[in-house]
Nucleic acid binder design. Structure first.
Length: 245
RNA sequence: AAUAGUGG
């Protein structure tokens, strides 16, 4: 089964759906034990290109092939639906999974929260995070980052910063993605000073800036006519072994 | 990890 699954992952990257179906059928005819794993890979591949109906069909075939869908398979379907902005379908999947005895996990919630934020429904995303905690599911770095990005998208910079504080207080560490999102927003808003402050916080907390971090800052500083600071940042970037693009 | 997050 591992060989088949590895092969299916490769085919998924190239979007070769028919080949994947043939392999799944081949697994059955050659009595290789089936699990939700290959179906989940397929659901995800369909989701990546927006084919939610096909993702739904792949999901349905899990039981069709005598397996029981697990939380990961539900998550893949839910994510495909959320990414396609099919919020109603996703919430339906969310309900189905619980009726089916699958407990939503941090990936389930984060996936939904991200989808809501992308759909411009941060308020709902924040409510969902509260629900999540009420259900004893602890938000992680990805969850908080999704909320922060949603708030930034909704132009709520102050709220995003206070969420960053909440995150830190709750013992959850922001990572490079968290900081890059914030830095980028403040640079776009013409507030490189705030971005620099966050950059200092980032490094003082041991979070490593990457090429994107420096790129955002260099660009932001130049845009704000702070050429000397920008050049300074470029030097730091090179010292750290990041290649400017 | 077979499923979730950063480019203007």
């Amino acid at each position: 089964p591992f060989t088949y699954c590895a092969l299916i992952e490769i085919l998924a990257r190239s979007g070769d759906f028919d080949q994947i179906w043939s392999l799944i059928h081949a697994m059955r005819t050659s009595h290789v034990s089936l699990s939700p794993v290959p179906f989940t890979t397929l659901i995800n591949a369909y989701g990546n290109v927006g084919l939610t109906d096909d993702a739904q069909r792949a999901f349905a075939s899990i039981s069709g092939f005598g397996c029981k869908p697990n939380v990961v398979a539900y998550n893949a379907l839910l994510n495909a639906q959320m990414k396609a902005q099919k919020t109603v379908d996703a919430f339906d999947t969310f309900k189905c999974m619980r009726d089916d005895g699958c407990t939503p996990d941090v990936v389930t919630y984060t996936s939904m929260i991200t989808g809501l934020c992308n759909a411009g429904e941060v308020e709902k995303a924040v409510e969902l995070m509260k629900d999540m905690m009420r259900n004893d599911c602890t938000p992680n770095t990805w969850t908080f980052t999704a909320i922060i990005q949603g708030l930034l998208k909704a132009e709520q910079g102050e709220e995003a910063l206070s969420t960053l504080d909440t995150m830190l207080e709750s013992g959850c560490s922001p990572d490079t993605v968290t900081y890059n999102s914030l830095l980028q927003w403040f640079c776009w808003k013409g507030k490189p000073d705030k971005a620099l402050e966050l950059f200092e916080q980032m490094t003082s907390k041991g979070c490593n800036p990457d090429t994107l971090t420096y790129g955002i800052l260099v660009h932001g500083l130049f845009k704000a006519s702070k050429a000397e600071l920008a050049i300074d940042m470029l030097k730091r970037m090179i010292e750290k072994g990041c290649n400017p693009d």
